[in-house]
């Protein structure tokens, strides 16, 4: 017998199905994967095109989240302004919205006859829907909230007095931000970037609604998996295995850091 305080008996028995329902499908994918043809399958024409497209669009979407999300997160953490809680609620909305609904919303905003899209087309001849840019916007829409939420929590954790100290030692607001604030939030920043990128990489619903499913243009890996699954190919499984490896790799790399960041942000 281990000498420790006892837990309610039978808890393990009830807890096990919850773990199993997640673990079993992961194992099933690895179990069914034909490892001898794995590399061939993920490097065939369709898969390779989808992989390159996914990598490119998800990296651009993550960079956009970094560039535009960082100032927003800083303002949310450090400044009081009108409608702040409303702004924050809207920033987080895509996390609870079904992604496909997000895609529909993007279509009505930036589609050829959308609120903004109609003007873009009329004035500049720019059409966004069903382009690679649309795929990037869809990914940004669903993934940026993760970045903003984690970074707001991180900026909120930064000791105001340390920032103040930097100011008294002659650093202006920008230099203080660059050398002190960013230095202090660096671990969270890396976690936020990886998490955002992983979410962008896995984006499906908003993409298929707003960008469509055109091979080579908007068919990212999740869309390719979906198409291949419908046509019954083995490459769907191979691509799924690859995404599974990437996702597990991300979680192992972060080691639960994003969970604690979100938890702090919720307080």
């Amino acid at each position: 017998m281990k000498r420790s305080l006892s837990a309610p008996s039978g808890l393990w028995l009830v807890a096990l199905p919850a773990a199993a329902i997640v673990i079993v499908p992961v194992l099933a994918v690895f179990w069914r994967t034909d490892w001898s043809s794995f590399l061939t399958l993920i490097s065939n024409e369709t898969s390779r095109t989808a992989l390159v497209l996914s990598l490119r669009t998800s990296l651009v979407a993550t960079s956009l989240a970094l560039v535009f999300g960082t100032p927003l997160a800083w303002l949310l953490a450090n400044r009081d302004f009108k409608f702040k809680s409303l702004v924050r609620a809207f920033c987080v909305l895509p996390m609870v919205l079904p992604p496909v609904v997000g895609g529909v919303a993007l279509l009505y905003a930036f589609g050829r006859r959308g609120l903004v899209g109609a003007r873009l087309d009329e004035w500049f001849g720019i059409q966004l829907a069903f382009t690679e840019t649309a795929a990037i916007l869809a990914q940004f829409f669903v993934a940026a909230p993760f970045f903003i939420l984690v970074m707001e929590a991180a900026f909120d954790q930064v000791d105001r007095r340390i920032v103040g100290t930097a100011r008294t030692f002659g650093a202006g607001p920008w230099r203080t931000f660059a050398t002190v604030t960013l230095g202090l939030v660096r671990p969270s920043l890396l976690a936020a970037l990886v998490l955002t990128w992983a979410r962008a990489l896995g984006e499906f619903g908003a993409t298929i609604a707003f960008a469509g499913n055109t091979a080579g243009r908007t068919q990212t890996v999740p869309l390719a998996v979906y198409s291949q699954l419908e046509s019954g190919g083995d490459d769907a499984l191979a691509l799924s295995t690859l995404m599974m490896i990437v996702s597990l790799g991300v979680l192992i790399a972060l080691r639960g850091r994003w969970v604690s960041a979100l938890r702090r942000g919720g307080q």
Partner: peptide, 16 residues
């Protein structure tokens, strides 16, 4: 603050 010529030792040192 950066223009005032003030140096500070805040509580706990305020080190980066």
């Amino acid at each position: 603050p950066e223009k005032r010529g003030v140096s500070t030792v805040f509580q706990g040192g305020g080190l980066f």
